[in-house]
């Protein structure tokens, strides 16, 4: 390391400690500490177990886990919810989500969910799948499950790589994107183009609500939360499959800092995978939803 670089680091360290001192000594800080009464503005949903997660720093999985469990708590359906998490980074989801869950083989989550939902039609069933799982090895199950209109929620985390096996090319890897198995960038003449799953499955009559969201900034997180909440709630209607695609990040395998990975979503991912609703329920369907009330089993 050069002398110049060292000086820079020292300066930066000094700046940070000065800023911290300033904050501690400021009036604002004192006022906060002296306040007598607090109001709870945020807490962990009780449907999420209070344990450390294994996810890499900055990874979207932990956030999406929380959003789903918040939705379950807000809808009051913890007793009636069964989740399915297949092979992938989220295979341990049952260590975090405080609902009954089944781990599934790679690609088979929607078949497993079909088995559960057909026999327990009054329960809320969701799957939580990655892009390799849902769009490569499990694409047949994905399409046929949705084509049957299975009345479940599919949460699809699309981060364009195989995360758990450390960064191989996925069916949703962007054209030209480098991964460990496309080290020179995804060559579309060899591997074809990223599959736009939401657009694909929205063509099937069995899909009821299809949306693509992200969680790389506050506004996006709020929209995703709303989408999950709606999608779970729609199960009451028994109208077909709800599909919430979430553009996730993968700082570790994208070889980026978490912040860089969030920017990459805005700069690159959304160009191939535009955010927004792809298929919405009709007004008549929603009217029916209001009639069923909020807390009934679906």
């Amino acid at each position: 390391m050069s002398a110049e670089e060292l000086t820079l680091i020292e300066k930066t360290d000094k700046n940070i400690s000065e800023e911290a001192d300033a904050l501690t000594n400021s009036d604002a800080a004192v006022n906060i500490c002296d306040a007598d009464e607090y109001s709870v503005v945020y807490e962990r949903p009780h449907t999420l177990l209070d344990v450390n997660m294994h996810y890499c720093p900055g990874c979207a999985h932990s956030l999406v886990h929380k959003l789903i469990m918040e939705a379950v708590e807000e809808l009051g359906i913890q007793e009636d919810t069964i989740g399915v998490a297949p092979v992938g980074c989220a295979v341990f989801a049952y260590d975090y989500m405080n609902v009954d869950m089944q781990e599934a083989a790679h690609g088979r989550a929607t078949a497993v969910a079909t088995g559960i939902k057909r026999l327990l039609p009054d329960k809320y069933v969701f799957t939580y799948q990655g892009d390799g799982d849902l769009a490569a090895i499990g694409i047949a199950e994905t399409i046929h499950t949705i084509n049957r209109g299975e009345n479940i929620l599919i949460v699809f985390i699309n981060n364009a790589v195989y995360g758990m096996t450390s960064g191989q090319m996925a069916p949703t890897t962007l054209a030209g994107m480098k991964t460990t198995t496309s080290p020179f960038g995804r060559d579309t003449s060899v591997y074809g183009y990223p599959i736009k799953v939401s657009e694909l499955i929205s063509q099937l009559p069995g899909s009821f609500y299809v949306t693509r969201q992200a969680v790389n900034k506050n506004t996006a997180v709020r929209k995703t939360k709303k989408a999950i909440l709606n999608a779970l709630n729609y199960q009451k209607l028994n109208k077909g499959t709800c599909f919430v695609e979430i553009i996730g990040n993968c700082p570790s395998n994208w070889k980026m800092t978490p912040l860089e990975s969030n920017d990459f979503i805005d700069e690159h991912m959304v160009k191939t995978f535009p955010l927004g609703d792809v298929k919405l329920p009709g007004a008549e369907d929603l009217k029916q939803l209001n009639q069923t009330g909020d807390k009934q089993p679906c």
């Binding site: 089944q102 599934a104 078949a111 079909t114 088995g115 559960i116 057909r118």
Partner: peptide, 12 residues
């Protein structure tokens, strides 16, 4: 798919 549906329903 059949055997995985069996898995899901047996698990339930």
């Amino acid at each position: 798919a059949s055997i995985n549906m069996v898995y899901g329903a047996a698990g339930a």
